[in-house]
C-alpha cells in the first residue's frame, strides 16, 4: 500500500507546515499549509523561501486546491506541492496536471491502482503546468 508518494529528487523538507495566516506574521517558515479557503496568491512574494506547500483536501469534492497548486506553479514555484487529506487514486492524474508532486493521503492507496492511474492518460487536451504537450500542439507541430 502507498502511504506517501513523491516525484522529486531533492531531500524531503522536515519543516512543520504553518497556516497561511501564521505565515503572514512569521514568513521565515519553510513550509506552509493551504486550506481550501486560503488565497494561494498571498504566498507569491515569498515563494523562494518555501520548501514545501501542503494543500489540504478536507473532502475530495472541494476542488479549490487544484487552482491553488496551479497558481503557485504558474508563478514559477519550484518547491514541493503536496496534496494531503482526502486524496484518492482517482484524483492523482488531475492533481499531477495541476502541479502536485507529492501525495500524503489519509488513506493508503493500492500500489497497482496508483501505477495504472498515473500511466493511463497518454495524451491531454489542455496545456497546464506539467510540461505536457497538449493534443492541439501535437496536431499543429
Amino acid at each position: 500500500m502507498v502511504e506517501f508518494l513523491r516525484f522529486r529528487d531533492d531531500e524531503v523538507s522536515e519543516s512543520p507546515a504553518v497556516t497561511v495566516d501564521a505565515f503572514g506574521e512569521q514568513s521565515n517558515a519553510g513550509a506552509v499549509r493551504i486550506e481550501p479557503g486560503d488565497d494561494a496568491r498571498e504566498l507569491l512574494p515569498h515563494l523562494a523561501h518555501i520548501a514545501r506547500v501542503e494543500v489540504n483536501f478536507p473532502v475530495f469534492g472541494d476542488g479549490r486546491g487544484y487552482s491553488a497548486a496551479r497558481i503557485l506553479r504558474e508563478a514559477g514555484y519550484e518547491g514541493e506541492i503536496r496534496a494531503v487529506g482526502d486524496v484518492a487514486v482517482d484524483q492523482l492524474a488531475y492533481m499531477r496536471r495541476c502541479g502536485f508532486d507529492a501525495f500524503e493521503p489519509e488513506k493508503a492507496m493500492n500500489e497497482a491502482d496508483v501505477k495504472t492511474a498515473l500511466e493511463r492518460w497518454e495524451e491531454v487536451y489542455q496545456k497546464t503546468v506539467d510540461g505536457r504537450t497538449p493534443i492541439w500542439a501535437l496536431r499543429h507541430g
Partner: peptide, 8 residues
C-alpha cells in the same frame, strides 16, 4: 473534457 483544474 478531462479538465484537471475544473473537475471538482
Amino acid at each position: 473534457s478531462f479538465h484537471p483544474e475544473f473537475s471538482y
